[in-house]
Simulated scan of single mutants.
Amino acid sequence: MARRVMEWAGRADYMGGIPRKIVIGAVGSFAKAWVTILNSTTVHNADTLLNLVRSRPIGLPLITVSNHMSTLDDPFLWGFKGFPICDANLSRWVLAAEDICFKSSPLSYFFRLGKCIPITRGAGIYQEHMNEALERLSEGAWLHTFPEGKVYQEDAPIRRLKWGTASLIARAPVTPLVLPIVHSGFDKVMPDKSSRGKRPPFPLLNKEIKIIVGEPMEFDIPKMRQVATTLSPKMSHPSLGWPRICPGGLDEAAQRCLYIAISEKIQNALERLRIFGKSFTN
């Protein structure tokens, strides 16, 4: 089995959970100050997110998905007024780029305490840390992903989603609820390039942030598996050497069909929110 980077530091029982509480409390306070005090933020349908985070049925996992506008989308996305961002027990797990957040031991330790799971971009959907994400979902946890796979600061339609999130939805022991979220303004708070042509050293102030929370999506995975199995013989792609997945023992072609169907459904939901967000005012 491949080594999981500092997984021990991410456990709730590590040193009684005190380091985790310190990191999440400090980062959460910073995000809340920047989002609610130093910038102007409006949120649509916040209660839906709050209810799912605080009081969804025990054992029911939640996956939130959003567009990716800046390197600070997480944690700033959760910094709006009324959200329990400093509560380590309610805080999300999040898939984080290994080459950015885990490129040194101190960074790995810090981000692990912040409930981040490292993902190696380009290593495929069956890399070892995806199994770790599945384990968190099997515990009924909340996981956030950026299924576009990278930061895009252009005002453009939602791009074709990577299949990692779809694979987690399909393979989770209990099918998660999926909540789409679209935001704008974080690209102005932390632009890739400022007036000097470089990323600013600190987040900027006095920007308008909008967060649009959608409605939870349910996926009938058994039915979608059946449809994928029926359609897959019509598809022809080079083999990637994927393992069969259970239940159903789906072969690689059927998995492709299934992941495409899930991803397109999520992409369409995100795009509808993006369009709605352009006209939304609080």
Rank of each mutant, 00 (worst) to 15 (best):
M1L: 07
M1W: 08
A2W: 02
R3W: 09
V5W: 04
M6H: 10
G10K: 05
G10V: 07
R11A: 11
A12H: 14
A12D: 15
A12T: 11
A12V: 12
A12S: 14
G17A: 14
I18S: 03
K21S: 15
I22S: 03
V23D: 00
G25M: 12
A31N: 08
V35A: 06
T36S: 15
I37Q: 14
S40T: 13
S40Y: 14
V43I: 13
V43Y: 05
H44T: 01
N45C: 04
D47W: 07
T48S: 09
L52D: 11
S55C: 12
P57V: 03
P57N: 04
P61C: 04
T64Y: 03
V65C: 11
S66L: 07
S66F: 07
N67V: 06
M69D: 04
S70L: 03
L72Y: 10
D73W: 03
W78Y: 15
C86F: 10
A88G: 07
S91A: 15
A96Y: 05
A97D: 13
D99M: 04
C101A: 11
F102M: 08
S105K: 12
P106G: 10
S108W: 06
S108A: 15
R112M: 09
K115V: 02
I119R: 01
T120I: 09
T120C: 02
R121P: 03
G122C: 12
A123N: 04
G124I: 00
Q127W: 00
E128C: 01
H129N: 06
M130T: 09
N131F: 07
E132R: 08
A133T: 01
S138D: 09
W142K: 02
L143S: 02
P147D: 05
G149Y: 02
E154N: 12
D155A: 14
A156N: 08
P157H: 09
P157W: 09
I158M: 05
R159Y: 08
T165S: 11
P173F: 00
V174D: 02
L177M: 08
V178D: 02
V178H: 01
L179P: 03
H183R: 08
G185H: 05
G185N: 07
F186M: 13
F186S: 07
D187E: 15
K188W: 08
P191Q: 08
D192T: 14
K193E: 14
K193D: 08
S195F: 15
R196I: 15
G197Y: 04
K198N: 11
R199Q: 13
P200V: 02
L205H: 11
I209H: 05
K210P: 01
K210F: 04
I212C: 06
G214Y: 04
E215Y: 09
P216S: 07
M217F: 05
E218T: 11
F219R: 03
I221M: 09
M224D: 06
M224W: 12
V227Y: 04
T229K: 14
T230G: 05
L231V: 10
S232K: 05
S236E: 10
P238R: 12
L240R: 10
P243V: 00
R244A: 04
R244D: 04
R244W: 02
G249A: 11
D251F: 02
E252V: 00
A253V: 01
A254D: 02
Y259K: 00
A261D: 09
I262C: 10
S263T: 04
K265M: 08
Q267H: 08
N268W: 05
R272C: 15
R274D: 02
I275H: 03
F276D: 15
F276Q: 15
